[in-house]
């Protein structure tokens, strides 16, 4: 039985590596503490990598008026005072990455409609590879009206 055991153990190693989310490069957006503007479109930009094959990613933007969320970055942003939500902006989308890709640059246009509440928001990114390994990143952002200069 032991011999049988040993023979089954020596299989090729499975993929144990998590994918990675890189938002440290210049074109990555939004970064922690960035501001997004109501009535405008912004381009979400990130680079995803994996050792074998990427799976999908999701973007979730929800309000943080009660300060419940925090970014996964070490740096904390200065938050506005706690307030009640009336009509907060909400965005949840999943994007599949084509099969067999190891490096992928995400570029998504996201429009923030008029009428949503200004304030602190949280942008949460989840990335998977085809094996089901996952990486997460949370970014604190502000959604405000652009002040006419």
């Amino acid at each position: 039985m032991l011999i049988f055991l040993l023979s089954t153990c020596n299989r090729d190693e499975v993929d144990n590596q998590r994918p990675e989310i890189d938002m440290s490069w210049d074109g990555a957006f939004p970064k922690n503490c960035d501001t997004l503007y109501i009535g405008e479109t912004f381009n979400f930009g990130a680079v995803f990598t994996d050792n074998t094959a990427l799976g999908s990613y999701s973007i979730d933007i929800h309000h943080n008026f009660d300060h419940h969320s925090h970014s996964t970055d070490v740096e904390d942003c200065r938050l506005l005072p706690v307030k009640e939500a009336v009509n907060p902006f909400l965005f949840i989308r999943e994007y599949e990455i084509p099969v067999g890709i190891k490096v992928y640059r995400a570029d998504v246009e996201i429009f923030i409609p008029e009428g949503v509440d200004e304030g602190d928001y949280h942008l949460f990114i989840s990335l998977t590879d085809r094996e089901g390994w996952r990486a997460e990143k949370g970014v604190s952002v502000k959604i405000l009206h652009r002040k006419s200069s």
């Binding site: 799976g55 999908s56 990613y57 999701s58 973007i59 979730d60 929800h62 949840i92 989308r93 999943e94 599949e96 949460f124 989840s126 998977t128 590879d129 085809r130 094996e131 089901g132 390994w133 996952r134």
Partner: peptide, 16 residues
Amino acid sequence: LNPSYRHDYLYGAGHQ
């Protein structure tokens, strides 16, 4: 319970 590469975009709020 297999962790897939998909995300839920409704009640799952973008989670795996």
